[in-house]
Design a protein around this nucleic acid. Structure first.
Lengths: 226, 226
DNA sequence: GTAATAGTGTCTTTTAGACACTATAGC
DNA sequence: GCTATAGTGTCTAAAAGACACTATTAC
């Protein structure tokens, strides 16, 4: 039996407001998305939940993200609303989707959680394949113009770490020299002054993003206000 | 008294789902937004309304747009959800915002409707100043990378018409020769073969966008998949 | 020493900006 | 003819791509 709701004016109202969170990371040169199992559903789904009365949807998303990944403040931004009337068989339940990026070594406490290839997912419940596709497209589009990867590269990182992340997202190979020059040219990262020696080879200089809030870089979006 | 709603599971639910539409156009070298008056409210607001049960929010937005402007199919895209709990004094009413672009000569049948400067609006109701700012930012960001201006330039247009629209949005001056070269290079427009003679001067060749659905152009977003 | 990874310098190609010049209309 | 608008060609500047070369570590 489908859920329904009626408001104090006597008209039909949404039965609930949901959030869904697309959690992405890069591991082994591949882009992965986090999915969870559902009670009484064969297909897996994106993590998410209902927005409580008086709660900001972003806080709902952050809360769910913390429950699944233990992370407090990675990169997160709103993807948009998915609210077509038949998207949820339980009833009229609009969803606000968020995109969150987390580091590759994130441990997932939730027992039912699995990482899945983001570009060729297994069938997902609701409209979640749609949501996931929108998330991947958003990530690809903002890759070189924003600090969106700060969620995957939070701490001090070497330029080669960053390059592997960018290559997995763009599905391209970058020349190491050109990559470093262009990433520095965005103005979004700064040297920490540290070095990291891991195995053989010259130790790498470490960098960090100057902000972990969503920010645009110096990418050439054709001079606005010359 | 605030509106409330309870769903069939016994929990609080949103009192309604709203859409707001930011309608933008360029007139006299300025970017303008459409606002309407409200019953019992001093401040003006963006056009919008409640999503009916079983209705797609996009259809609600298109319906409202048609009521206010008489237009059927301009450029429209979702801006995002605005759903903080205190955004509407009437109660818990999330809103899905849309960005629509219309030609400069659009006649507005709604008697209370007025065009307002989009970048320095008078105070607006609810969180509508926020929504409007997000719309302007979206438009600026996509200007050179998409066919977003097809709503403002629907029919056959001269390159000089397009240049005036782009200059008003970017708040910049473009060299006519370079402008034409770069707009053609996006691959989003095509020549109609017609010419337009208006007053003195050589007649202008006419162009049109090849699609009026949201589309990305050949703008250099750093070679994805080289 | 060799192998492995990090980083610099510079040449070439592509894209964007500036601007001189030509073309076609009304008067 | 003059003025106004449209359109072409080309030089310069800036950004991106390719790649040779140097630097520092483990062994």
């Amino acid at each position: 039996m489908a859920w329904t709701a009626t408001n104090s004016e006597g008209y039909a109202a949404p039965a609930a407001l949901a959030t869904d969170v697309v959690v992405l990371t890069v591991r082994d040169a591949g882009l992965l998305a986090l999915t969870v199992g559902r009670d009484g559903g064969a297909e897996r789904a994106l993590p998410g939940g209902f927005v409580g009365a008086g709660e900001r949807p972003l806080d709902t998303a952050l809360r769910k993200l913390h429950e699944k990944t233990g992370l407090q403040a990675p990169y997160i931004e709103q993807l948009g609303a998915f609210a077509d009337p038949d998207r949820d068989p339980r009833g009229w339940i609009p969803s606000i989707a968020y995109l969150a990026l987390v580091p590759a070594d994130t441990e997932v406490p939730d027992a039912s959680a699995r990482w899945m290839r983001a570009r060729q997912p297994a069938p997902l419940a609701f409209d979640h394949e749609h949501v996931l596709a929108a998330a991947v497209e958003r990530l690809e589009g903002k890759l070189w113009w924003s600090n969106i990867t700060v969620g995957m590269l939070p701490g001090p990182f070497a330029l080669s770490d960053a390059r592997r992340v960018y290559e997995a997202i763009a599905q391209a190979r970058y020349d190491p020299a050109t990559f470093g020059r262009d990433l520095k040219a965005t103005g979004l990262i700064e040297a920490t002054g540290e070095q990291r020696a891991a195995g053989p080879g010259r130790p790498a200089a470490m960098y960090r993003f100057t902000s972990n809030r969503p920010t645009w870089g110096a990418g050439r979006r054709k001079r606005i206000a010359a």
